[in-house]
Amino acid sequence: MPVRVDAALDDLVVPTLDNPREFSSQLHTHLRRLINDGAIAPGTELNQADLARRFNVSRIPMREAFRMLQQEGLIDVALNQRAVVRALDAGEVDQLYGVRITLEALGARITAGRLSDAEVAEAQECLRRMRKTKRAQDMSEWVAAHRRFHTLCTARAGAPLAGIILSYSERTERYVRFGQRAHADTFAVAEAEHEQILTALAAGEVDAAGASMARHLAHTAATVLADLDGDFEALTVAQSVQMCAGGPL
Score class of each variant (00 low, 15 high):
2 P>Y: 07
6 D>A: 02
9 L>G: 02
9 L>E: 09
13 V>M: 15
15 P>Y: 10
18 D>L: 14
19 N>K: 12
22 E>I: 13
26 Q>E: 15
29 T>V: 13
35 I>P: 02
36 N>M: 12
37 D>W: 04
38 G>Q: 07
38 G>P: 05
39 A>F: 07
41 A>T: 15
43 G>R: 06
43 G>E: 05
44 T>A: 13
46 L>M: 12
49 A>M: 10
49 A>N: 09
50 D>H: 13
50 D>T: 11
51 L>W: 01
54 R>W: 07
59 R>C: 10
61 P>R: 05
61 P>G: 08
65 A>P: 04
69 L>S: 09
70 Q>P: 03
70 Q>A: 15
71 Q>S: 15
72 E>K: 06
73 G>V: 07
75 I>S: 12
76 D>P: 00
80 N>Y: 12
80 N>L: 14
81 Q>F: 11
82 R>W: 11
91 G>M: 05
92 E>I: 03
94 D>I: 05
98 G>I: 04
100 R>M: 11
112 A>Y: 01
113 G>Y: 01
114 R>C: 03
117 D>L: 10
119 E>F: 00
120 V>R: 01
126 C>V: 06
128 R>E: 15
130 M>H: 05
133 T>H: 15
135 R>I: 14
135 R>N: 08
135 R>Q: 12
136 A>D: 08
137 Q>K: 12
138 D>Y: 01
141 E>H: 06
142 W>R: 09
148 R>C: 04
149 F>H: 11
151 T>E: 14
152 L>N: 02
154 T>D: 06
155 A>Q: 11
158 G>T: 04
168 Y>M: 13
171 R>T: 00
171 R>K: 12
172 T>Y: 00
173 E>Y: 00
173 E>N: 02
175 Y>I: 00
177 R>C: 07
180 Q>S: 14
180 Q>A: 14
180 Q>R: 12
181 R>H: 04
183 H>E: 12
186 T>A: 05
189 V>P: 01
193 E>K: 04
199 T>P: 04
202 A>E: 12
205 E>F: 01
206 V>Y: 01
208 A>C: 01
212 S>L: 01
213 M>C: 08
214 A>F: 01
215 R>C: 02
219 H>V: 06
219 H>D: 15
220 T>R: 03
222 A>L: 08
228 L>Y: 04
228 L>S: 10
229 D>Q: 04
232 F>T: 04
233 E>Q: 11
236 T>N: 11
237 V>D: 02
240 S>L: 02
242 Q>P: 03
242 Q>E: 13
243 M>I: 11
243 M>R: 15
244 C>L: 11
